[in-house]
Design a binder for these strands. Structure first.
Lengths: 243, 243
DNA sequence: TACGAAAATTCGTGATCACAGTCTTTCAGA
DNA sequence: TCTGAAAGACTGTGATCACGAATTTTCGTA
């Protein structure tokens, strides 16, 4: 699709987000937003990097206006921050923010998981949901075996949002997405510095909880999954960002 | 029908929001955003009303560009929604959204309350926090006595955010604000249709919990306050919005 | 060499215009 | 009177420019 030859390396790496349909009828601003969103999530924007409208417009080969509105949207979603200079930057990750993000994730994602199970069970599709999640989890296991950290993160994202999306929550899901947007860069940026230890597979526990019809166990599995994942990150090296 | 004339009278009615400082050094877009934000929160935008850039620019006596960016920001915060026509509208409140908003509020606001107490207690300012909240609660009691529904809601907002702001959470507070933005219009729009019953004052319970140093009781008070308040609203008349 | 003021560049903000869709109105035909 | 197609008005999108503020560079002075 996109014929812009600049930056030909990675067009739509993490496209498997929310919209399966990839219509070309979207606005330039929307595509610019998704593009920047993916680049932020995958850590290609280092914290503290100077992000300017004209610079990005040059880089992405689009006009100033789409970039301008895409940046503003990302700021509204807290993926970027607005400095008093009126200039946007990739925010630094601090120990406080990291701890806050973990707690907020636990609060919102256990809620979303419960709602997802309730909605799926009400439709009699709990088994199908468990099957879908299990497939994603197997793909994630393969990523672990091959040591593909980026694929691992991608499948992890797919697992969580496949679960939450089952709730069809137009309120909770966007909030969770905002949290992931804030954590994403840090996850990818630290991929080298950690030897991930997979002691227990909380995803398998979650799938089993769904099959057993136990929402409480599902919520516990999700909470532990979040705490395991966040706890394995190098908290001691925070703050991470501009000096 | 709503009086759709230019409304030059109400410039900054509910300005006492979060920033005590009212510097004129802000951008036009920022002021337009706050203006529209307040009007949405106080229910002056009925659901389903057609919101156009040029119309608002005319009405607010500002250029198209500030309105354009303010609308986009409000859409990103889920205060307004973007129709497939690329046109923004005040979203209708449905029973599902209402229930979701209640659960999300409970999850996030009990978390914020706990963090606020912990932060205040760590600074040895828990007593001062309780005093501040008590003052707001007394003002709210006066609003109840005089039957001033709008003042009641305003003090209610002040109480909750005075508490959450004590946590200095740069992550959780914005999420809660987004939820209030989505509920706000509905609260004000239904002010006529309900005889509010104040059986128990959960705010006083919250203040007592802070003074007693009991975070769990504080969280329970906040949760019950939310459920009481949301439960008293006329759920049976949902969906509320465009036919 | 170090320092600081002035000049040049770059930035965000906002205005204005052109364009291509969408919606409303109008009006001709049954 | 009702239907439906064309004309007109209106809307969001995006480009381009002007302006003032902030940043960076330059260059003269200690």
């Amino acid at each position: 699709m996109a014929p812009d030859q600049t930056t030909p390396e990675d067009l739509d790496s993490v496209r498997a987000d929310q919209d399966g349909a990839d219509e070309p009828r979207t606005t330039l601003q929307e595509r610019t937003y998704r593009r920047l969103r993916d680049e932020i999530m995958t850590g290609r924007f280092r914290p503290g990097r100077s992000v300017t409208i004209r610079g990005l417009a040059d880089e992405l080969q689009v006009g100033l206006m789409p970039v301008r509105e895409a940046l503003r949207r990302l700021v509204a979603e807290h993926a970027l921050t607005l400095k008093p200079n009126r200039r946007v930057e990739v925010p630094a990750m601090t120990a406080e923010s990291f701890e806050e993000l973990t707690e907020a994730r636990v609060a919102l994602e256990t809620l979303a998981a419960r709602r997802a199970y309730a909605a799926a069970a009400a439709r009699g599709e709990a088994g199908a949901l468990a099957d879908r999640l299990e497939a994603i989890d197997l793909a994630q296991d393969r990523a672990i075996e091959t040591g593909d950290w980026e694929a691992y993160l991608k499948e992890n994202l797919a697992f969580h949002f496949a679960l939450y999306r089952a709730a069809e929550s137009r309120v909770t899901t966007p909030l969770i997405e905002s949290l992931w947007l804030q954590i994403g860069p840090f996850l990818y940026l630290t991929r080298e510095s950690l030897g991930v230890t997979y002691n227990e597979d909380r995803h398998k526990e979650a799938v089993a909880a769904i099959r057993a019809g136990d929402p409480d166990a599902l919520a516990r599995a999700i909470e532990q999954d979040i705490r395991d994942g966040m706890g394995s990150l190098p908290r001691n090296r925070l703050p991470f960002g501009p000096a």
